[in-house]
């Protein structure tokens, strides 16, 4: 069976900045100098995240809380699409 682009996306990880808005995602890895702060805020490995809006600052829900995060920080969060 040929792999469709969407199938490829589901299997691979992208940065949170590049993930599409409205998707349910799972955090795969967190890096960068602010990784501890991101984890403390809830962006830690295996956590489910829903991306609500794109922009200069992204809006995501993590554990039912709505968080705003600069896109340059979101670049350090690798996510996998769940839906």
């Amino acid at each position: 069976m040929a792999l469709t682009p969407s199938k490829l996306f589901v299997d691979s990880t992208v940065s949170l900045t590049k993930a599409a808005a409205g998707c349910d995602l799972q955090v795969e890895s967190v890096g960068g100098p602010d990784c501890s702060q991101l984890r403390d805020l809830g962006f830690c490995e295996q956590m489910r995240v829903r991306k609500i809006a794109n922009g200069r600052n992204l809006i995501c829900t993590v554990c039912g809380s709505r968080l705003a995060i600069s896109s340059h920080l979101a670049d350090h969060i690798q996510v996998k699409q769940l839906s």
Binding site: D34, Q37, L38, L41, N57, I59, S65, R66, L67, A68, I69, S70, H72, L73
Partner: peptide
């Protein structure tokens, strides 16, 4: 480049 991280309460 300032970082912005904030909870948006309901």
């Amino acid at each position: 480049q300032p970082s912005f991280l904030m909870e948006l309460p309901p």
